[in-house]
Design a binder for these strands. Structure first.
Lengths: 217, 217
DNA sequence: ATATATATTTAGTCATGCCTAAAAATTTGA
DNA sequence: TCAAATTTTTAGGCATGACTAAATATATAT
């Protein structure tokens, strides 16, 4: 059984692998986990000895199949619990991340599977992110990032790739909620911000926001 | 915020206080938590410094109001989660204890309260034990231990004070389930075992079993 | 090519929560 | 009452998972 700390490292390494399509560096992990690089090195050695990842000094790290399996199990639990909190306990999508960070470490395969069944085997969580099934498989819905949409075109918002409560509260305040239609009115070259229209209201959002919003393809 | 370990000590001290009506000794805590007495001393000092209990060297320990509040909060969470697992996720009463031991440490008052509401504010858990409300209050149903029932009399089984899966599986196998009627047929003086009748079937149970079974008064 | 900057690892430290072994306090019983 | 048994505490150690500071490896730029 991996510890909570080990699971958090593995989960983060998995996320970075997905984003970067490359070996993950010590510093990047350290930054994401708000830890020091030396602490990361310690943990990478430990996880390597436990045969959960491939660690090459000064090069980087890559999960092996055992590590990937753990990552997917933790992600599955995280997203199932988020779904439970929103659908059954009336939480908003901006409140669930922190609590799911705790619940994702509960060890009981039966619990996870019964929860999955109780929720009717959902395929996406409240943020539109895919939920791996019991075997770690999931089909990522084909999406495009909002920044790829051309001026004048409209898309349906289906996924947000940033779980922070502040970010999600900002979206909610601006009626940017899963399922809404977003029309691109104008793109600014100098700062990559764009003006969008939702429910006949127009406003501008910065590049940092745009890059986290994904539309149905 | 107390750590998981601190919460477990506080919970155990609370249980022992209830059972013994006296200061709790180091050795007793050690035995219950399968730890060494020296580890217990360390923790008692720590909890005393945190002002969660009154610790007197060589005498014993007693929770103060802050400690009691924490104990009741953990017990509340434990029993709410057990209820959730049985009522919503189709677990049996013998499977839930271990999982609830993990879930009871999740820190989110809102989660606890929403769960409570989702379950319709239950007052007892699947073992018949009372669930403290948000303010830590509960009304223990008046019960008598099965060993107090006289030969020939019948009572309704409403509470079991032993959560171990082995014990509960034994009860289930013998149709001893919450709500059933138990008639005392015969009491053996030499080993305090008794013969009971449930659903027209008679069998004998040992003193150790009898002392965990409680009937409606 | 090589000096400098950056990234990474190593070495040593610390708090937590556990342990063993030894010392000290308390209780028991002859 | 006082020696023996028991209980409890103290002292010192260990693994985990963090840290700082120093050393080393790699990358960059002139």
């Amino acid at each position: 059984m991996p510890t909570k700390s080990e699971e958090n490292y593995i989960k983060e390494i998995y996320a970075l692998e997905q984003k970067c399509n490359a070996e993950v560096s010590t510093n990047l992990i350290a930054e994401k986990l708000s830890a020091k690089a030396s602490s990361v090195t310690d943990m990478l050695k430990k996880l390597s000895k436990k045969d959960l990842l491939i660690y090459q000094k000064y090069v980087g790290v890559k999960l092996n199949s055992k590590g990937r399996e753990i990552a997917l199990s933790v992600i599955r639990k995280h997203r199932l619990w988020e779904t439970f909190l929103v659908e059954k306990l009336n939480f908003s999508w901006s409140e669930v991340h922190e609590i799911a960070e705790q619940l994702e470490h509960i060890q009981s395969e039966k619990l996870t599977d019964q929860l999955d069944s109780f929720l009717n085997f959902p395929t996406t969580d409240p943020h539109g992110e895919p939920i791996p099934n019991k075997n770690g498989e999931f089909t990522r819905i084909k999406t495009i990032c909002l920044d790829e949409l051309k001026e004048g075109n409209t898309g349906v918002f289906v996924e947000v790739r940033n779980d922070s409560d502040k970010f999600l509260k900002f979206l909610t305040k601006n009626s940017i909620i899963i399922g809404c239609s977003i029309k691109v009115i104008d793109k600014e070259d100098f700062d990559n911000s764009i003006t969008i229209e939702i429910d006949d209201k127009q406003f501008s959002i910065s590049e940092g926001v745009v890059q986290n919003l994904y539309l149905k393809r």
